[in-house]
Amino acid sequence: MPSLSFVTVDVFTTTRFAGNPLAIVRIPEAGHVSTEQMQIIACEFNLSETVFLYERLAGDQRETEWRFRIFMTSAELPFAGHPTIGTACYALGTLAGNASSGKLVCNAGPIGIQYSNAVARASIPHNVHIHNEFKFTTEQLYELQPALANLKKPHAITVVSPVKSMNFIMIELDSLEDLAQVTTSGVKPRAKLDAGWDTGFIGSYFYVVMPQDGQRPGPKRHSVRTRMIEGTLEDPATGSAACGLCAYLAMEGQLKNASFLITQGVEMGRRSEIGVAVTLTDLGAIDKIELSGSAVKVMEGTVHYD
């Protein structure tokens, strides 16, 4: 019976049993595992995402380059943030013996990665799109989250795609008390997306921009608390949504060089710390998005499959 080795890591944390869990399954040299088998294995782990990491072929001169694929329990993703950071930490920190830099290649494209002091930084492939053909209304929001109807109206509701097929309804709330009212439910978020973009995953991403010295943060430092809900799922850390949100905030505020600390998962007892840096071009478009964070190994073992 064929088998594959795996590890699990908790991502965007240095503390085990916090952050966002990720399974990393290693595909050996010249090994073949079908897409269908990968999907079944991802279902068995039953985590928000599972990564399949291809080991390099013997004689491959690209010593710190790896190809990987990302699966939810129901579908493959072109890109996701916490799988990228978790895989970067494991690949550079463990497989490459604390190498300082390398490259990951996912379905969304190549990702340059760096590793230092147990923190991975990834230059994220992006195709940021702010949807404007249709509006997501407060009435739709209250259908998703009835408790919010009794609170102050959200500051902003915007649908953002950091890459095609990853779509998030971004809802800015007034306070952490309002954020605490958000709940999971049997209702999954739905939104009319712009032509050519109407595909893939849709999540609802609630955020509060934290004050700094009694004011909203200035251009040099932004601290944001978030929660990501998709029906009955709450995600402890959503790197792709964090990248999309920070890109939107940087463009909205015309912050040419902005750094953000996104704190997520607090309400569910899995605090995550997500770093995002955004650079704009002189014309105000996205030039670069860098995602950063740590990961700690929790388990390792073997998966047997048919």
Rank of each mutant, 00 (worst) to 15 (best):
Ala122Arg: 00
Leu92Thr: 03
Glu44Asn: 07
Arg69His: 12
Glu267Cys: 12
Ser161Lys: 04
Thr15Ser: 13
Arg271Met: 08
Met210Ser: 13
Lys152Ser: 14
Phe45Gly: 06
Val119Asn: 02
Tyr142Phe: 15
Gly81Trp: 01
Ser116Pro: 00
Leu193Ala: 02
Thr137Val: 08
Gly112Gln: 12
Thr302Arg: 14
Cys243Tyr: 02
Met299Trp: 11
Thr50Gly: 08
Ile262Pro: 00
Ala58His: 13
Thr183Pro: 00
Asn167Tyr: 07
Glu49Arg: 06
Asp306Glu: 12
Glu65Arg: 15
Leu176Val: 09
Gly86Ser: 04
Val33Cys: 05
Met170Leu: 14
His155Phe: 14
Val182Gly: 03
Arg227Leu: 10
Ser165Ala: 15
Glu252Ala: 15
Ile124Arg: 01
Ile274Asp: 00
Gly31Trp: 13
Thr184Val: 14
Thr281Asn: 05
Ser34Ile: 04
Ala242Trp: 04
Glu139Asn: 10
Asn150Tyr: 13
His304Trp: 12
Thr8Leu: 15
Thr183Gly: 05
Gln254Val: 11
Thr138Met: 03
Ala18Arg: 15
His131Tyr: 04
Ala277His: 10
Ile41Gln: 02
Thr158Pro: 00
Leu255Arg: 07
Thr232Glu: 11
Val33Asp: 01
Thr138Ile: 05
Val298His: 07
Pro236Asp: 00
Gln215Ser: 13
Cys246Phe: 04
Val296Ser: 09
His82Lys: 07
Thr199Ala: 15
Leu151Phe: 09
Leu148Asp: 04
Gly231Lys: 06
Ala277Met: 09
Gly186Lys: 11
Asp10Ile: 14
Gly86His: 04
Arg227Asn: 09
Tyr207Thr: 09
Ser48Tyr: 04
Val51Phe: 03
Arg227Trp: 08
Ala96Ile: 06
Leu95Pro: 01
Ile171Thr: 10
Thr263Leu: 08
Lys297Gln: 14
Ala118Gln: 13
Met210Asp: 13
Ile113Leu: 01
Glu36Arg: 15
